[in-house]
C-alpha cells in the first residue's frame, strides 16, 4: 500500500496530540509514514510513540538549521519525502503553521489542497465546515495527490501498536535569502487550563465583562467546570484578555460540548467560531442580544450576578462528587 505522509507536530521532545489524530485519519487512506523535521536526534526520541499510534514508517529530516528558520525546512522535507516515497496523500494539522506548510507544498507539487478537513473517507473525499458553520461541504482533489489539512480535534487518537521502519532524508541547505530566521520563540504560557480548541467546556467573556479584573468571574466559572477560557474580539481589543484566546472568525474555532457566553452580543463573526458547539448557554443583560436567540439556555441578566452563583453551584456539586 502506498504511504500516506503525515507531518509530525512536536516540541522537540513530545509529539502533539494533533499528530496522533492525523495518524488515525491517515490509516483510513493507507499506511501512515510520519515525517519528523527537527534538530538531530528528534526522530529517535519520538519514533516509539509514533509507532505506537500507527506509523508504519518514521522519516527523519534533521539538521541543526531546521529549527532556526520559519517553515521552509518542513516544506523542503515534505517535498523530498513525497518524491522519495511516492506518497499517495499528505496530511498536515490545520494549525497556523500547518496551513502555510501544506499550501506551499501543494504549490510545489501542483497538487490539490483541501483545507480544514473534519472528516475524510477512504476515497479521499473530505468533509469541511465552511462559512463559520453555515455549510457542510464534501470535496475531493482532481489534480495531483491530495494535500489535506485536518482540523485539530476532529479525529480520536488511537493506539495501533506496530513497528515503524526508520529512514533518513537529507535536507537541502536553507537559502537565507528566501527564508525568515526565527531569532526568538516565546511559547504561549500553558497554564493549568485545557487548550481552547480541545476543551470540552469553554467559558467566554465579551465586552460586557467590562475590564481585565472582570475576567476573574469568567476564569472562576471555567475553572469550576474544568474548562478553557475564551474571549470575544471586542474583549481582546479592549485589552481585557490576551489575543490567543479570541474565539471567532479571526480567532480560534471551537466546538466544545458546552459553550458559555458571558456578556457577548453574538456578532456573526463571533458565532463563526463557536456555533458548532453542542450546547450553548448565554448570559446577557440585553434581551435583544442575538446570542440569546441561538442559545440552548438563555439568561437575560447581569453576568456578575449569574456567573458567580453558577460557579458556586458547580463547585458545590463537584464537592459532593
Amino acid at each position: 500500500m502506498p504511504d500516506v505522509l503525515v507531518l509530525v507536530d512536536h516540541d522537540g521532545h513530545h509529539v502533539n496530540k494533533s499528530t496522533y489524530e492525523l495518524l488515525a485519519a491517515a490509516r483510513r487512506l493507507g499506511d501512515p509514514a510520519a515525517l519528523v523535521v527537527g534538530t538531530p536526534g528528534t526522530a529517535a526520541r519520538l519514533g516509539e510513540s509514533l509507532a505506537r499510534h500507527g506509523a508504519t514508517g518514521v522519516l527523519a529530516a534533521e539538521s541543526a538549521e531546521a529549527a532556526e528558520f520559519l517553515l521552509t525546512p518542513a516544506v523542503d522535507a515534505l517535498e523530498l519525502a513525497v518524491r522519495e516515497t511516492a506518497a499517495s496523500a499528505v496530511l498536515v494539522s490545520a494549525t497556523t503553521d500547518g496551513r502555510e506548510v501544506a499550501a506551499r507544498l501543494a504549490a510545489r507539487l501542483d497538487a490539490g489542497l483541501l483545507i480544514d478537513a473534519v472528516d475524510l473517507d477512504a476515497s479521499g473525499v473530505v468533509t469541511q465546515i465552511v462559512f463559520g458553520g453555515s455549510y457542510t461541504v464534501r470535496s475531493q482533489v482532481t489534480h495531483g495527490i491530495p494535500v489535506i489539512t485536518v482540523r485539530p480535534g476532529s479525529f480520536e487518537p488511537a493506539e495501533h501498536p506496530g513497528t515503524a521502519v526508520e529512514r533518513t532524508l537529507t535536507l537541502p541547505a536553507v537559502d537565507p535569502a528566501a527564508s525568515a530566521r526565527v531569532t526568538d520563540r516565546r511559547a504561549a504560557p500553558a497554564g493549568d487550563r485545557p487548550g481552547l480548541t480541545e476543551a470540552a467546556v469553554v467559558v467566554s467573556g465579551g465586552r460586557g465583562v467590562a475590564g481585565a479584573e472582570g475576567f476573574e468571574v469568567v476564569e472562576e466559572l471555567a475553572d469550576a467546570m474544568g474548562g478553557a477560557v475564551g474571549a470575544s474580539r471586542a474583549a481582546v481589543d479592549a485589552g481585557y484578555y490576551p489575543h490567543q484566546f479570541q474565539v471567532g472568525q479571526t480567532g480560534a474555532s471551537v466546538s466544545p460540548r458546552l459553550y458559555v457566553a458571558l456578556g457577548i452580543s453574538g456578532a456573526i463573526q463571533h458565532l463563526a467560531g463557536m456555533q458548532t458547539s453542542k450546547t450553548i448557554v448565554a448570559v446577557n443583560k440585553d434581551p435583544e442580544a442575538p446570542i440569546l436567540d441561538l442559545a440552548d439556555y438563555a439568561v437575560v441578566g447581569d453576568l456578575f450576578a449569574v456567573a458567580p452563583q453558577l460557579t458556586r453551584e458547580v463547585a458545590a456539586r463537584r464537592a459532593v462528587g
Binding site: A106, L113, P287, L292, Y297, V299, G301, V306, Q309
Partner: peptide, 26 residues
C-alpha cells in the same frame, strides 16, 4: 485542483429555553 462533491446548508440553531434572572438564574 479540487472539486466540491456536495454542499449542504447546516440547519440554523433555534432558540431554546429563555429565562430572566430573578436572583436564582445561576
Amino acid at each position: 485542483r479540487t472539486r466540491v462533491v456536495e454542499a449542504v446548508a447546516r440547519p440554523a440553531r433555534s432558540a431554546g429555553t429563555r429565562i430572566t434572572d430573578d436572583g436564582s438564574a445561576g
